[in-house]
């Protein structure tokens, strides 16, 4: 098993958290709600997962509890941003602060304690015996298959092959028109932003149970923001989001390899590559996309609350 194989294996594991969170953000944004609180939600999810796994010694129960916490947060966020219609950017920033703060507060007694159980790899019977690819792709844990294959496929089918998906996209593009034809705008936005926060919280739990195994303050370190950036730089296409998620996982995994192999690059630069690439990927496609901007743009009604009286 050489180094490159190992790096790819870990980049798929590490990228999983970012991809899951960005799928959640994508769902939310597609229905027209900008959720900037992913960073805080991921922290909260990570803390929930570590506490649950230390008390129940079962990673699956921990993930279910994490989903529950995510649902509660989602309902609170949706009440603030969709029912009351408070400024979505401010609500998101507030959720970031609140999430990180609460996570550090309740996670303090658990800091540094290593999870007793984690997600075990589950090789797929025949595919995993292929020499390199089998190890990298088909010997992962179940969550990885869920994140990279099952959830995106489900979302694709629901969003682009059903009437319901068309309705959701209509709510994100033009809620007034959708409302005129009888689509329940508020209900759809409520549901999808909740689903988004659940996936965001789950991403934090996944990170604990699959790659980090222990909680510490500052564990998420901007990965939630990178997930939001991923939606932008994936240009609202799931495939691109997943591919760039793996790329970011790779950059995370490469973190210390440079120091080990004595590359002439300061380790600090390798550590900040994640953010540098996030900026580059956020800026350059926008320059390229200026000509065919219709194809690549964000949902038109993103971040604008829907007032029925303004219709």
């Amino acid at each position: 098993m050489d180094i490159a194989t190992n790096l790819l294996y870990f980049s798929i594991i590490n990228g999983g958290g970012i991809v899951l969170a960005s799928i959640g953000e994508w769902l939310s944004e597609r229905s027209g709600v900008l959720n900037l609180g992913i960073e805080g939600l991921m922290s909260l999810g990570a803390v929930t997962a570590i506490i649950a796994v230390l008390s129940f010694h079962n990673p699956w129960i921990a993930l279910i509890i994490t989903c529950g916490v995510g649902a509660i947060c989602g309902i609170i966020f949706a009440i603030c941003a969709i029912i009351i219609k408070a400024n979505q950017v401010l609500c998101g920033l507030a959720f970031t602060m609140l999430g990180i703060g609460i996570a550090e507060f309740i996670g303090k007694p658990y800091e540094g304690i290593i999870a007793t159980e984690h997600l075990q790899p589950m090789p797929i019977p025949f595919l995993s015996s292929i020499s390199t690819i089998g190890y990298i792709v088909f010997s992962q844990n179940i969550m990885v298959y869920l994140i990279y294959i099952i959830i995106p496929l489900t979302i694709y089918v629901v969003f682009f092959k059903t009437q319901h998906g068309l309705n959701v996209r209509a709510v994100g593009e033009n809620p007034e028109a959708a409302d005129a034809v009888g689509v329940p705008v508020t209900r759809i936005r409520f549901f999808y932003s909740c689903l988004g926060t659940i996936l965001g919280t789950l991403a934090g739990g996944y990170l604990i149970l699959a790659s980090v195994f222990t909680w510490s303050g500052g564990l998420i370190a901007g990965q939630g923001w990178i997930a939001i950036a991923l939606v932008m730089l994936g240009r609202y296409r799931l495939v691109y989001m997943i591919l760039s998620g793996v790329f970011f996982g790779f950059i995370t995994a490469i973190g210390f390899e440079g120091q080990v192999f004595n590359w002439p690059i300061p380790p600090v630069i390798l550590n900040s590559l994640l953010y540098i690439f996030a900026i580059i990927f956020a800026i350059f496609p926008s320059f390229l996309a200026k000509n065919n901007s219709k194809k690549w743009r964000a949902p038109a009604a993103l971040c604008t609350p829907f007032f029925r009286s303004n219709r």
């Binding site: 180094i3 190992n6 790096l7 870990f10 540094g112 290593i114 790659s211 980090v212 195994f213 222990t214 909680w215 510490s216 500052g218 564990l219 370190a221 995370t252 995994a253 973190g255 210390f256 390899e257 120091q259 080990v260 192999f261 380790p267 600090v268 550590n271």
Partner: peptide, 25 residues
Amino acid sequence: VQVIHTGSWFNPKVTIQAANALCDQ
């Protein structure tokens, strides 16, 4: 002896990354 600096006394995530990198080498 190969040394890796992680830049903090307590950051398990980074410690694990550094340990993995050392193993890879």
